[in-house]
């Protein structure tokens, strides 16, 4: 188990390194471009060269990469070009808002999809299963920006009960979180419900469930003790693994509702060319994705005795 843990750890560190190198290659291999971005479009060639010299950009590429990576790790993420403020406190504040959004969405999605998926898988083919399945396929077919449009039309423009933007102008407000969370849960839960259902239905037809039933166990006990654990392994690990899909959805929703969060910040930085915010933000998002992969792998091994005691 420890062995597996270390191997996975090694693998994600490796992936993280490769990605950081690729990112550095994308962002900073063209030195003049960097200087241009920092100094503005109207700076002269001469100014740019001086800036490069002064900021150590004439060192060998690999050395610059090591330096950059070191700075990132210790938290020195540079200054925003757009707002002229240090990146770190700004980014962390945005990240906090997004963590609230993401956390809510993840837990609600988990709750809905596991409960609905299990029920529908246990009663495969019955009316409840069919209703859940149809509901799930309907909601997964409405992408975030479409459901946001529909929900905004109803709750913002027609009923007028919810705000259409989540800019937190007067500080954090729960009311402004409702629509973004709703949009993301609606779009995401269907997919995981369907997966949980498939997994549960498969386990329910397995031979060991038959063994348990023919041992004379109560149906509820068969489902809870014998089927559930085996059925949840796959959906749970995939759900954790796909945290980065959630992050993508978060970006869209934050843009739509002008939610003051990490995703909107990343999007703005990408469009503006705010180099240092973009660098830090992509690194953070990749770190989250890689870490969730690690959690998912280790979780899978923990849940599955065949791997734990392989």
């Amino acid at each position: 188990m420890l062995k597996l843990f270390l191997r996975r750890l090694l693998s994600i560190v490796l992936i993280g390194l490769v990605i950081s190198f690729v990112l550095f290659l994308i962002f900073e291999s063209d030195k003049l471009d960097v200087a241009g971005k920092v100094l503005g479009a109207y700076s002269t060639q001469e100014q740019r060269l001086i800036w490069l010299e002064r900021n150590g950009y004439n060192e060998p590429f690999l050395l610059r990469y090591a330096d950059w990576l070191g700075n990132f790790v210790v938290g020195d993420w540079g200054k925003s070009l757009q707002y002229d403020i240090p990146v770190r406190p700004y980014l962390l504040a945005q990240l906090k808002n997004t963590a609230i959004l993401g956390g809510l969405v993840f837990s609600l999605t988990l709750l809905f999809s596991l409960v609905l998926g299990v029920i529908s898988g246990v009663f495969e083919g019955r009316a409840i299963d069919r209703s859940v399945s149809i509901f799930a396929v309907l909601t997964t077919s409405v992408p975030e920006f479409a459901s946001a449009t529909l929900l905004a039309a109803v709750f913002v423009f027609w009923l007028g009960v919810l705000p259409g933007t989540s800019t937190f102008q007067n500080g954090f407000s729960w009311k402004e979180v409702v629509l973004p969370v709703a949009v993301l849960v609606i779009y995401n839960f269907g997919y995981y419900t369907r997966m949980t259902r498939a997994s549960m239905a498969e386990v329910m037809t397995s031979q060991y469930v038959r063994t348990a039933i023919l041992k004379g166990m109560r149906f509820r006990r068969v489902v809870l003790n014998h089927a559930l654990r085996n059925a949840l392994i796959a959906p749970f690990t995939v759900m954790v693994l796909q945290l980065n899909y959630l992050l993508s959805g978060v970006i869209v929703v934050e843009v739509f509702f002008a939610y003051k969060g990490f995703g909107k910040m990343l999007y703005d930085a990408a469009l503006f060319g705010d180099l240092y915010i973009l660098e830090a933000a992509t690194m953070i998002s990749v770190a989250i994705a890689v870490f969730s992969q690690f959690v998912s792998d280790v979780g899978y091994a923990l849940l599955n005795p065949r791997i734990r005691f392989g």
């Binding site: 992936i15 993280g16 490769v18 990605i19 690729v22 994308i26 980065n244 899909y245 992050l247 993508s248 959805g249 970006i251 869209v252 995703g263 990343l266 999007y267 990408a270 469009l271 060319g273 992509t282 998002s285 990749v286 989250i288 994705a289 890689v290 992969q293």
Partner: peptide, 22 residues
């Protein structure tokens, strides 16, 4: 597989933003 894992580690939206702006 390693290449795929590297690419899958990018949140899709981040990937779109990066690829298209780059």
């Amino acid at each position: 597989s390693f290449l795929a894992n590297v690419l899958l580690s990018f949140p899709v939206m981040v990937m779109y933003l990066l690829v298209i702006t780059y």
